[in-house]
Design a protein around this nucleic acid. Sequence first.
RNA 1: GGGCCGCUAGCUCAGUAGGUAGAGCAACGCCCUUUUAAGGCGUGGGUCAAAGGUUCGAAUCCUUUGCGGCUCACCA
Length: 543
Amino acid sequence: MNIKDKDVIIPCIMCNESKPLSTHWADITADRIIRERGEKDTYVCASGITPSGTVHIGNFREIISVELVVRALKQRGKKVRFIYSWDDYDVFRKVPQNMPKQELLETFLRKPITLVPDVLGDEASYAAHNEKSLEKILPVVGIEPEYLYQAERYRASKYAAGIRIALDHRDVIRGELDAHRTTPLAEDWYPVSVFCTNCDRDTTKVTAWDGEFGISYICDSCGNSETVDLRNTPAVKLPWRIDWPMRWSVEGVDFEPAGKDHHSEGGSFDTAKLTGKEVFDFNPPVTFQYDFVRIKGGSGKISSSSGEVVSLADVLRFYQPEVVRYLFAGTRPNSEFAISFDLDVLKVYEDYDKVERSYFNKPENPKKLKKWEKDARIYELSQVGGVPEALPFQIQIRHLTTLLQIHSGDIDAVIAYLGDVPEADLDGFRVRAVCAWNWVNDFAPEDFRFALRKPEDGKSALDVNLAAAVGALGILAADKLGDIPEKEFSNLMYNVIHEHELESGEFFTAVYQALIGKDKGPRLLSFLHVLGKDVVSGLLGAY
RNA sequence: GGGCCGCUAGCUCAGUAGGUAGAGCAACGCCCUUUUAAGGCGUGGGUCAAAGGUUCGAAUCCUUUGCGGCUCACCA
C-alpha cells in the first residue's frame, strides 16, 4: 500500500518542488485527502456519535481529530464542510449507570433515544440533553461543526431512497455481513430496522417487502402489525453497518476517522467500505484509526455506559482550552494516551508554556529547526483562535498555585499582586487561574496544599527557643523583607538561625508551622517574599 | 482465530520523505549554609525486543519470531 503511494508520488513534480506544509499528522492527512479524493471545490469531513450517554473525552478525540484536519485543509486554501452527525435515531439499549431515575429510563428501553425523556434537565429528550451539553462547550475549544440530527432526517423520510437501495441489494449486503459473522443472517432478513408506530419499540420483525417502498412488520411487544411506506413513515431506519455507508453517499463524505473498534477487519468500517462501494456506488472516505484516551489513575477505557465518565467539560475545569487542544494535537491519533489529573497536570502546563516560548524564538541551527517546526505546528494547532502576534504573558503554573493559595483563591488579588499582567492577556490569565485553583482544591496532593494562618488563629505551639527564633525572623522581616536583595535577606535569616543555635531544618519547620500550620511548605525564601513584609511580620511578630 | 498498536538510557517517552541515536526525570560529580519534585554547572549511560532481508547506509522499509496491550467475530 505504502509502496504504491510512493510510486505515485516520486514522479510528481510538485512533490520535488514544494515541501509538505509540515509532517504533522493533520497535515499529512489533509494532503492525503486531496491526493486520494482529487481536487474538489469543497471537501466534506465527518464525525459523529450516538448520544446514548454523556459524550466523553474519548469521543472528543474523534471530533478534535477531524477539526485539526479541517484546519489543515483550510490552510491549503480548500473549502471544507465539517459535519457532525448525532445518531439519535439509534435504540436506547442500556441505561447508563451514571444516570438518575434508572427505573423510569428502563421503561424506555428499545425505543429510539430521541423519544427517551431528559432525566438530567429539561431538554426535549435524553438524546437532546447529551447533544446540547456538548454543543454548548465545543466552541470553548474552537470547534463549531455543522450538526446533523439523524432522527429528524429519518423521521422525515429523507433517506427513503437510500433505504430502498439497501432493500434492492439485500442479498449482496447479507453476503458482506455474513462474511464476518459467526451466525449467518436469516433467509428472511431485511436490511432495515423498524420502530413500531404504536409502541415506538424496535422489537419488530419485518414480514414482507413489496419490492418498492412498502414494508410490513409485526411488533413482538404490542402485537401491532401494519404496512408502512418508506416515503412517508418515520418508522424505518437502516442498521448501523448499512446506515453509515448510505450517509457517506448522501453527504459525499471525503474524510471520517473512526475508533479502533470500527477499524478491525470485519469491523463496521470494514464492511461499510464494501457496502459503500458495491451497494451505494460510493468510494469510501479517507480515514484513520484513533486509539482510546485513558484517564490516569482511572480504570482503563472510559465509557459512557460505565459509571465513571470524564467529559470535555470535566477536563476543561483543570486544563485551559489551548492546553486541551495541545494534548490532542501533540499526540498521534493512533496511539493511546492518558489525561492526568495528578501532578502531571503541572508538567503538561510547563510543556505547553515551553512550546509557546519556543514558538516565538525560532532557532538558526538547522538541526534544532526541525524539532522547532514540529513544535511550532503543534502550537499553532493548539490555538483556539489565531496565533498570538507575540509571546503572551506567562505565569508558571506552580507559582500560580502558590499565589492562589496565599490569596485564598482570589484571582483579582493575585492579579493585583502581580501588577504586570497585560490587559490583553487578562482573560487568558483568569482562565488558567480558575483551572489551577480547581486543581489545587480537587486533585493536588496534600503536601501541596496550604492555607495561610491568620493572626487571630493564635500561635502554634513551639519550643521556647524556636519561638524566639521565629519571632526574631518576624522582626527581621518587618525591618528588611523586600527592601534588600533576596540573597542578603537569606544571609540575615541564617544569622538568626545560628544565633539561636538551631539546625536549619527545625527552624524551617517552625516557620512553616507559624505561617501555614504545617511542617513543610513552598520554598521558604521566595515564599516569604511573595507573602511580603506585612503578612510575614504580622504572623511571626507574635512569637 | 483475524486485525491493529507497542517493544529506544534505570523510568516516562521524542525520533517517517532511510544518512553519525535525543529530551525530561533518576544516577554520579562539583557549586550555592536555602526542603511542596529547590537552583546552577558538568558527567556517565542504549547490540533502538530477536533473527533474517532490501540498501553504499536501517530505530526508520520488508519477512519471521517473542513479549505486552487493545479490538473484531452481538449491537452500535
